[in-house]
Design a protein around this nucleic acid. Structure first.
Length: 401
DNA sequence: AGGTATTCACATGAAACTATTCTCTGAGTTAGG
DNA sequence: TAACTCAGAGAATAGTTTCATGTGAATACCTGT
């Protein structure tokens, strides 16, 4: 990076500086690809189940299971997109509504879900003020406006159910009885394989008329998915050999999450671009992983409530790689509380908070018994030294100490 | 030596309490007829 | 007069506290050799 850079190099760099991307959108989260490797079975299955709409018959309700990043959403959206195309070519009235129940502010209570559904059908629903059954009526009205089939896609229903109970599902499955002209079919998507276990049996039988299971991808399948996307996203020869392999291997390590793999590739390409590299190298994958992890940890940290932050701050005081116990954390935590002007919580609650931090992956905590000397959690940090200092700074702002 | 009982330092559960957020009702307001 | 707005009551929820019970194994204490 000195002024001694030869002119030839400079020109070289300049010429190559045109973006390594053709179409970066192909790597973004909400992109629906036209080629979905290794999911032909599921596509056929879903398409087969939904196909009756083209004959104006009511398709069965479907339920899709599978962990995150196994292609559930992509497959469903792909099929629906194709279905809409054929439907409009044939003049079959078909409407689809997609709601992601994970998005908190939009859809985590019965009211909000129904309001959101009604809204996407073109009704104007105030965000508060109406009784829930009023909103139901609006929703029904919207559907029954004309003769049509409506497909309701509920992404991540498991979230919805453990927030708001399964009553909504029950109501939705019975909605057809109240419709005169039109008909409704449900497509449920869930990350939780055991989701159906603790659900009202009445809902179970009607929602789960058909089920499609999505298995995690293995490293090879991930690689092919990445190849497919990379073809669209990058100019040829941008990828150094081994990059995709590394990328997919990393993602496969964690239950074969394709979204993760694609994210990793995207961030790696951004890193490469920023460095003015002409190629994406395996090192960029490492940097990308580090960055994703760092962003994730920072993001989670700042969105935690103050009390959790205080507990986390207390834990951060341990030197990296050294273990600490609940009692010690609690003492430190009390100190932090008085410094930050918070009223300290009971040890009982702090114990739960520590458990939550563990679930979030910010810390690692394990319950061990030290025999005569009691039973406790051993807590330690898994983050690197400089991330740890960064976190302390961040928390200093947040807590005002 | 081998076996049982204690004991520690919290973990884990359940119930009760509180503060906040939602839902819903009805009074008051507006606007169109 | 129907439709809309909005304050406030009451219900639902999330976050905590209080009280109670549970836990695993290092130690202490026996017991019989």
């Amino acid at each position: 990076m000195t002024g001694q850079l030869g002119l030839a190099d400079f020109f070289e760099e300049f010429l190559n500086k045109q973006s390594i991307f053709i179409d970066k959108k192909a790597l973004q989260q909400n992109y629906t690809p036209q080629v979905i490797p290794h999911r032909q079975n599921q596509i056929n299955q879903v398409a087969g189940i939904l196909a009756p709409v083209l004959r104006k018959e009511k398709p069965s309700n479907i339920f899709c299971y599978g962990k995150t990043g196994t292609g559930k959403t992509v497959v469903v959206q792909y099929v629906i997109q194709k279905l809409l195309e054929s439907a409009s070519a044939r003049n079959v009235p078909l409407k689809t509504v997609y709601v992601n129940c994970k998005l908190k502010k939009i859809a985590d209570t019965e009211y909000r879900i129904i309001a959101e559904l009604a809204r996407s059908l073109g009704k104007d629903v105030p965000s508060t003020g109406l009784p829930t059954d009023e909103v139901y009526n609006l929703f029904l009205e919207a559907i029954d406006e004309k003769e049509q089939t409506v497909l309701l896609v509920l992404d991540e229903v498991d979230r919805l159910v453990d927030r708001a109970g399964d009553e909504i599902l029950y109501n939705l499955t019975r909605i057809n009885g109240q419709l005169k002209k039109s008909q409704v079919s449900l497509v449920g998507i869930s990350n939780d394989v055991r989701f159906m276990d603790n659900i009202d049996p009445r809902v179970k039988s009607s929602l789960g008329e058909e089920e499609t299971i999505f298995h995690p991808y293995n490293a090879m399948e991930l690689k092919e998915i990445l190849e497919e996307r990379a073809k669209l996203a990058f100019r040829p020869d941008v990828l150094e050999g081994g990059v995709l392999e590394k990328c997919s291997a990393y993602a496969a390590r964690e239950h074969g999450d394709a979204r993760r793999a694609i994210d990793l590739l995207r961030v790696a390409s951004e890193v490469a671009e920023r460095e003015n590299a002409t190629k994406i190298l395996p090192e960029h994958i490492d940097k990308a992983e580090e960055r994703i992890e760092r962003d994730r940890v920072l993001e989670i940290t700042v969105t935690q409530p103050k009390q959790s932050q205080a507990v986390f701050r207390a834990i951060l005081d341990i030197p990296v790689n050294k273990k600490i116990e609940t009692g010690e954390v609690y003492e430190k935590y009390k100190g932090i509380c008085s410094a930050a002007g918070l009223t300290p919580l009971t040890q009982r609650r702090v114990s739960d908070l520590i458990g939550e931090l563990d679930m979030l992956g910010l810390i690692t905590a394990k319950v061990i018994s030290k025999g005569r000397y009691g039973r406790t959690r051993q807590i330690y940090m898994t983050v690197s030294e400089d991330l740890s200092t960064k976190l302390k700074d961040k928390l200093k702002e947040e807590l005002g100490i």
